[in-house]
């Protein structure tokens, strides 16, 4: 008898609640464009914010509400995913450029002497708010790895010997999380380049040449030799530091040989038959 009573009670309760739930669900139903869901499913779901939106959902909403695909690009999914989305929405995708994070500093301890001991919380952000850094270069990498902890994909690790970040280009999706985390602005997003080949100035020091030279042996001293030798006018020297515009660079590597401090890095090129000068290649880019 008791069992019967219990079962009846529970059944009745269940019925009442299900009816209530049904009506509540009806009342508070949110009308939503079904395409948002569809687009979100196509996106990689990393929620990295590399597209400039709060996450994949926000990006999907923006894509659906946007008129064209101009300026919308998911760095994680790349052109493949963007093409799929465009197809699903009946639009044409705008070809985006796959980017990769590049560390523009080669100042390992053997080229850049440590001149003081930092003894605070191990974060570049905290250190940068205190002083220029524990070397005489006030622009370069501080080596405490804010970039590594910012990377959502585990693509950045710190080299304990060189005290510089190593970017695993296989993992890097170019979301720019590390670049944003770096208080010194040492990390730049650059085009992956033809066959993953890249030439860039691995230094951001804006001090005058003599000061830079004193602080670091592989710093850019702003001499401008590279800019003179560049046949494509891709190199500009501004504020005592050279910058190679990757949209103009044709990867000829003339500047690499010209640079007196070997501050220009060329990565993923096949070894040359007769090397004229030993060219320092930052380890982090070797695959």
């Amino acid at each position: 008898m008791i069992i019967l009573f219990t079962v009846t009670c529970l059944f009745a309760l269940g019925l009442v609640f299900s009816v209530i739930l049904y009506f509540v669900a009806q009342k508070f139903k949110v009308e939503e464009d079904p395409r948002i869901e569809q687009v979100e499913k196509l996106l990689p779901g990393a929620n990295c914010g590399g597209c400039g939106n709060a996450g994949c959902r926000a990006f999907a909403e923006r894509i659906v509400s946007a008129e064209s695909m101009e300026g919308l690009f998911c760095p994680v999914g790349g052109n493949e995913v963007m093409n799929q989305i465009a197809e699903a929405l009946g639009r044409t995708a705008v070809e985006g450029d796959a980017k990769v994070a590049v560390v523009r500093c080669s100042g390992s301890p053997d080229c850049r002497k440590r001149t003081s001991v930092y003894d605070g919380y191990a974060s570049c952000k905290v250190m940068a708010s205190l002083y220029k850094g524990d070397t005489d270069c006030s622009y370069g990498c501080l080596g405490l790895g804010d970039c590594a902890s910012a990377c959502e994909f585990g693509g950045v690790t710190m080299d304990p010997v060189r005290r510089l970040p190593i970017i695993n280009t296989d993992i890097c999706v170019g979301c720019g999380g590390c670049a944003e985390a770096c208080p010194k602005g040492v990390i730049e997003l650059r085009s992956r380049g033809l066959k993953e080949r890249r030439v860039y100035v691995s230094c951001v020091n804006r001090d005058k040449g003599a000061v830079t030279r004193k602080a670091c042996t592989v710093g850019c001293i702003g001499c401008g030799k590279c800019a003179k030798v560049c046949p494509f006018e891709a190199i500009k020297v501004e504020g005592n530091v050279a910058y190679i515009d990757f949209t103009k660079c044709r990867l000829c590597r003339k500047c690499v040989d010209e640079c007196p401090t070997h501050a220009i890095a060329a990565v993923n090129f096949p070894p040359r038959p007769v090397p004229e000068k030993p060219v320092e290649q930052p380890k982090e880019e070797e695959q």
Partner: peptide, 9 residues
Amino acid sequence: MDKLTISHS
């Protein structure tokens, strides 16, 4: 005297 130690207050 060694290298100077630097930290926040």
